[in-house]
Design a protein around this nucleic acid. Sequence first.
DNA 1: AAAATCTATGCAATCGATTGCATTACTTTC
DNA 2: GAAAGTAATGCAATCGATTGCATAGATTTT
Lengths: 348, 348
Amino acid sequence: MERETAEKAPTIQDVARIAQVSAATVSRALSRPERVTDATRNRVSEAVRITGYTLNQSARSLRLRAARAILVALPDIGNPFFSTVLDAIEREAARRGYGVLVANRFARDNTDALRDYFLSNRADGLLLLDGSVDAEQLAAFTRAPINLPLIVACESIPGAPFHTVITDNFYAAKQAALYLLQSGHTRIGHIKGPKGNVLSSEREAGFLAGLASASAERREDWMFTGGFSMDDGARAAKALIALKIRPTAVFAANDEAAIGFISEISRLGLKCPDDVSVMGFDDLEIAAHFQPPLTTMRQPREAVGRLAAEALIDLIEGAPGKIVPKQFVLSSELIVRKSTAPPPSLRS
Amino acid sequence: MERETAEKAPTIQDVARIAQVSAATVSRALSRPERVTDATRNRVSEAVRITGYTLNQSARSLRLRAARAILVALPDIGNPFFSTVLDAIEREAARRGYGVLVANRFARDNTDALRDYFLSNRADGLLLLDGSVDAEQLAAFTRAPINLPLIVACESIPGAPFHTVITDNFYAAKQAALYLLQSGHTRIGHIKGPKGNVLSSEREAGFLAGLASASAERREDWMFTGGFSMDDGARAAKALIALKIRPTAVFAANDEAAIGFISEISRLGLKCPDDVSVMGFDDLEIAAHFQPPLTTMRQPREAVGRLAAEALIDLIEGAPGKIVPKQFVLSSELIVRKSTAPPPSLRS
DNA sequence: AAAATCTATGCAATCGATTGCATTACTTTC
DNA sequence: GAAAGTAATGCAATCGATTGCATAGATTTT
């Protein structure tokens, strides 16, 4: 287990010997340079240069009880939505000198594993990008005696007292519905996200609120059970094709479902937007390059990641004590492209 | 800096006191259960349960000089190709009890930062998914006195003595060219990857080798300067449209460029595959759902990630000493979909 | 010039887990 | 039953950085 290196890495003692000061002074020279004289600081810098010293994080972590790392738990790194958010998190964390540990596809019932990263001093806090966890258990982690610094981002956990960074999914979905209504559509369907997912239900509710506000028709067989994957979208397409009365527009719970949907209806002979307008949600990079380019609600993914990382590190470094949970709610933006058009009835 | 927790986390000493044994015995009971009596083992287990003890990784790392974590350095997590590989890496690492630290978009000239993760005892080894680094400097890291365990995956660094896990890009690209030739195309273009990238040049060379083996025509103005992004593909599309004599098929260096290309030629009035067949490389998830579904070379991304993680951890845990660099070369697979067809001249 | 104040630095304990060596208790062998 | 061997456990040093407290020296105040 113990690694054998020909030459051991230089330690603070080595630097101290060469600079002819004590290890304590080296430590101070490096972390609070104003506390030592110029002469000492220079001697230490020189000794660091000579030895090629790098601080041993394990020793530092042990002493300070701080790992200078955060754990990011996500449901699926492979998903471009999450990987972009992760990108922003990583950037912000690096800026503030923190490492980023990733835990992918951790099971719902595996919150203990996340807690243990904290308890075992590998991470100083948790950034959770998944709302499908036991809120009660999670809340217990944030209280004494554990006091896990926690930020929930992307997906909220309703009614739970966590710091969160989310986007306003309800309002954005309502905007989407309103946009389709304003384009002249009266028969509008929705490809729902996965069951039990908070984002799904908020987007569905927002969509229905949009319909309701215009007193538009709402039919159960236009509410397609779906999911967030392309295959889910394709399944919804098959369901739509089978209908006698079809909606002229469909709002999908995310871009991937929208793409899978369009892909499948094209295969089956319908055209988008000629026969059916389709909207997505997220504005993934592919949305602009898909055929047809996808009308969608753009979520500020980078901002979500950056703010979440920022908030978590503030929490970690902040004074302990009672902190009122902060909620950041960012807005999404309507991006109109070619996958939506007025319904056939309104076209010349 | 020092975190103040109401109650400190239980330590091995606490467990020892409750189990009425020494800390040394607790340590042994946990790491090598066969070395203690059943009675002791049970008492320790019970004490662990009572206290809720979790091992402090910092202390362990300090003592053992091992972090039980690997650092994955990649050029762009946001890219679905890399994020899938990362997914596989994470899974394998977790299986073997290793944490995964990510370093994204690290600059070419910033290899020191990667080395410092190792020197500072935050990571036990480096998994590099980017070939665009200074090979000489990197090689120095793997030698004494640093002895950084290193695996280069996805992109090889030619002529450098590293363990690598790659796919056979040259052969796969040649296969792609041969497939297009066999479909009857005689005028075939190529959207090149980014300049200076190893993958780009191997795919380009393989493509040209394919053409050469069939003595097919090769024209400089059919070799589009490109890149790996959708925008790069779109630019190539504009260049193609401007040509007097156009190729009837195009092989793009990756799926994203292929998608950007198809998207742009559609916008400009050409149809795929009717006017031009297009092939990609990678088989991203979107490839199957794009319109038209994309013919492509599927890279075994999961296998690459898994093998790379496996090899790195073997290297970390293996006996130190001279190790001959191992090269894993995996094969890609032709996936035929609808974006390719025989050229117009051969169709009825 | 003595007293008080301040500054720079060193000493030594500390963080928590691991392990070589020493010790004790128990078993086997002749 | 004494000697030798073995198994289980404890003692104490160790990994490397940080920091409260002590001290020596410099500076200011009276």
